[in-house]
Computed example of a mutant assay.
Amino acid sequence: MAGSRMTRILGRWLGVTGYMIQYGCIAHCTLEFVADFVVCKGPSMEPTIYSEDVILTEHITPRLNRIRRGDIIIARSPSNPRQHICKRVTGLEGDKVKNGFATYIVPRGHVWLEGDNTRNSTDSRAFGAVPSGLIRGRAVCRVWPLSELALLTTSHKWEIER
């Protein structure tokens, strides 16, 4: 009698553990390959995104190479691989980009990134074009603070300019 009770308890614990592992795997795959939340730090994207804002990013667009001019992206920093940066795509491969008096052509497989706060942003103007492979996700919306909940859609300015 005690043995069958112990077997039932053990069976329940194993069942719960199995569900926890399944849901953990689903959560991991969702956050790694579909979408996740990012806390942005620093003033480089002000006034669009402020430091400590939480944004929802999706990972499908970069994997399909569908990044467009004007998209806000999260990428691994080309100057510090342990850090991620949040910038706007201002140039795609083949685009001519002006940086001061110089004009650059964005190489194949690269993008040109700039912060919206041009006076306080370390971006492609400092480190050059960024390989598209460093892009982790595309910002979809700001979710925190709740009072500033908003979609982060591509600005028409970027579509018209080029």
Rank of each mutant, 00 (worst) to 15 (best):
C86Y: 00
V39R: 10
I135Y: 04
C29L: 15
I74D: 00
G133V: 04
R82N: 12
L149R: 07
N80M: 06
V54A: 13
L92H: 05
P145A: 05
P81E: 01
F33K: 08
E46D: 04
L146A: 12
R66H: 10
R8F: 12
K87Q: 07
I55T: 06
K98H: 08
C141Y: 04
P78N: 00
P47E: 09
T90H: 10
E148N: 10
P107I: 03
V16P: 12
P81W: 00
G94C: 00
W112N: 02
W144C: 09
S124P: 05
D123C: 05
I85W: 07
P62Q: 09
I74V: 13
S132W: 10
T48I: 05
M6Q: 13
E46S: 03
R88D: 08
R68V: 02
E159H: 14
S132L: 15
W144D: 01
N99M: 07
S77A: 04
D116W: 11
R108K: 13
A126S: 15
D116I: 01
I9Y: 04
L56E: 07
V38E: 00
N80A: 05
P81M: 00
E114M: 03
T103Q: 07
H156F: 15
T57N: 07
S44P: 02
S124Y: 03
D53N: 11
G137T: 00
E148P: 01
C40N: 08
V54F: 12
G15M: 08
Y104A: 00
R8D: 08
T90I: 14
G24W: 06
R63Y: 08
S155I: 10
R63K: 06
I85V: 09
